[in-house]
Amino acid sequence: MGSGGPSTIERVGGGRPLPPLIGSPRIRARGTSSAGSGWIAYLFLAPYLTLFTVFVVVPAIYGVWVSFHSWDLLLPNKPWVGLDNYRNLFDTNSAVGDDFWNAMKATAIFTVFSVPLLVVLPLGVALILNQKFRGRNFFRAVYFAPYVLGVAVIGVLWTLLLDPNIGVVNYYLEKVGASDNIAWTTSLPWAWVALVGVTVWWTLGYNAVIYLAGLQDISRELYEAAKVDGASRWGRFRHVTLPGLRPVLVFIITITILASANMFGQAYLITGGAPGNETRTAIMLIAQEGLQNFRLGSAAAMSFVLALFLMLVSLVTFFVFRERKV
């Protein structure tokens, strides 16, 4: 079965509604074949390109400019400080150095623990929901339901549920004989368990839906062929399902890493960064530095360092999962 390889499956699986097809042969072929009518492509791209330029490219460049200044929107002089805002981040004696790396560490911890769960668990859920059984649509809806709630709603909800002294979670833990004094929101490592747990519960459905779409795109014939060749259940999963899901998998891993690295609302609402500032994530610190302390230059510098890290991580992901030619 291994001889088919992923590219065959890609070609078989037509009409996939998802975006993660970077580098797939299908797209490449299409790109080169219609060189003559380029302007029509550009015409269709123009609206998005305009928005992209106005809301992403220009602000990003402006942000670089801001990061070289001591910038307060409302103060008449915004002195040029060169690379000082960046230098301060790498100087533990500065006002922001410690905080920044602490926040980066918090972000890394959250990402490292949430991403594997958010990649593996939704796959399991999607595999189950892809079976034929009564009430399937109901369960599909149930798993997706939390995702429709806003972060403010889930934040307040879990703050109350997880309260160490008056929360329902500890109340029932005591009822079943477990420890009733776990400080879910004010101590480590429990705060991370809570934040990762809440996030997995909240966003699992989204990833599951994408997996589900990917699963339904894999041709039945391949499974039948594998069965005829005597492949076991595991063999079919390993050699048909997984390769078939590769582009979806790369997409999910990438967006989940980015989403986790941008975590803000959960920590802001549930732990408030406590204990101390141990669960204050990078985005939370950037927001505080820029919008509360009005040090936009320093906040911009932090953003660019964070962005650089995210680009590196995305590149690594992309290379690890890139399509290997047979």
Partner: peptide, 18 residues
């Protein structure tokens, strides 16, 4: 006081006569 009193819990407790 119990340990680890989180945001608002002290006031909610007061309102519940705890």
């Amino acid at each position: 006081s119990p340990p680890n009193v989180a945001s608002d819990a002290d006031y909610i407790a007061f309102k519940n006569e705890k």
